[in-house]
């Protein structure tokens, strides 16, 4: 088990190092940072001075090493655009994205699991077929289209929910939350629904497939033979046996959602990390881009590693050499 842990974590670190390398390469490809940071009247001496201060005279590996060391400590440098610590900018934006993703995940589970169960146990009924068909549409609709349609219907036409922004937020320490105010809750609904639509279909299809598998199991037949009512057979005995893969997928998808949130955040002008990134791209704010890349990758890698480890804890067979 210890060997497995070390191996998994070493793997994760290797991946992060590779990501850091790509993030670092952006700096070198997008041109001379000194040119971007100083105005045109700067003297040669000032340029050389800044160059030395930024460590740009050092060799490639030394610079990369410094970048990794700083990044590991949360220091991604200073934003070119607003001259603030990058990590501070991200910390400010992270709660917005995180809340959006969590609410979207809860919606997708709360809607997707019951739909999956219903379509599995009422296989062949017209509404199951209809849901199956709709889920294909749900999978294939791009999320910006969903977002725009939601805004059009619920904000513009019906005027029920705000079309953009976080509404009102409350500060708790460094964390800003919109979930505690009514305006904040109203504001999060549309972007969360738009973000969760794809997940709902994913969860529904996964639960349906797993349920169909489990319902064929002998213990389901035996539970029915013991006189357990159908409702309990479906929701206690069958569903619980389906939840493992659902939990796994949900954990993995949180990474995806954070990445996909970029589009939703843009559509809804949601002040999260994704929006920060898009703005950074517009202004060629390289430190912010590099930091975003590293942090999103870190979330992905961390979630994957945790899922792997959780699996090994649950199933001893996975602890072997080929894990």
């Amino acid at each position: 088990m210890i060997a497995f842990l070390i191996k998994r974590i070493a793997n994760a670190m290797l991946v992060m190092l590779a990501v850091a390398f790509f993030a670092f390469m952006i700096f070198r490809f997008v041109g001379d940072p000194v040119e971007m940071m100083l105005n045109e009247q700067a003297t040669q001496a000032e340029r050389a001075d800044l160059r030395a201060k930024l460590g740009l005279e050092d060799g490639f590996l030394v610079q990369f090493g410094r970048f990794v060391t700083n990044a590991a400590q949360g220091d991604f440098g200073i934003s070119y655009r607003n001259q603030q610590e990058v990590i501070g900018l991200i910390a400010e934006r992270f709660p917005a994205t995180f809340e959006l993703v969590i609410v979207a995940t809860i919606i997708s589970l709360a809607v997707g699991i019951p739909l999956g169960v219903v379509t599995a146990i009422r296989r062949g009924a017209w509404y199951s077929e209809a849901l199956q068909f709709l889920s294909i549409i749900g999978v294939s609709l791009p999320s910006f289209v969903v977002g725009i349609v939601l805004i059009l219907v619920f904000s513009v036409t019906l005027g029920l929910f705000p079309a953009f922004g976080r509404g009102e937020t409350v500060q708790i320490g460094w964390w800003s939350t919109g979930l505690l105010t009514e305006l904040g809750r109203a504001a999060i609904l549309l972007p969360a629904v738009s973000l969760s639509l794809f997940q709902i279909t994913l969860v529904m299809r996964l639960v349906r497939a797993e349920m169909l598998e489990v319902l064929r199991a002998d213990f389901i037949k035996f539970a029915r033979a013991r006189g357990v009512p159908a409702r309990i057979v479906h929701f206690r005995h069958a569903l619980r046996n389906c939840l493992m893969p659902v939990v796994t997928m949900t954990a993995m998808q949180i990474g995806n959602l954070i990445a996909f949130a970029l589009i939703t955040e843009t559509v809804f002008q949601w002040p999260g990390m994704g929006l920060l990134f898009i703005q950074a791209v517009t202004f060629v704010d390289i430190p912010v881009m590099a930091a975003y890349l590293c942090i999103v990758s870190f979330i992905f890698v961390a979630l994957n590693t945790m899922v792997d480890i959780a699996y090994a804890v649950i199933d001893p067979r996975l602890r072997g050499a080929n894990g």
């Binding site: 002998d218 213990f219 539970a223 033979a225 013991r226 357990v228 046996n241």
Partner: peptide, 27 residues
């Protein structure tokens, strides 16, 4: 079906072939 649920287990019990798979592994 509803009434048959009350007959199964109460009036007629069942034992199936494979005890390994007849019990729900999670309970």
């Amino acid at each position: 079906d509803r009434e048959m649920e009350r007959v199964r287990g109460r009036e007629v019990g069942a034992i199936f072939q494979d005890p390994l798979t007849s019990l729900n592994p999670l309970f």
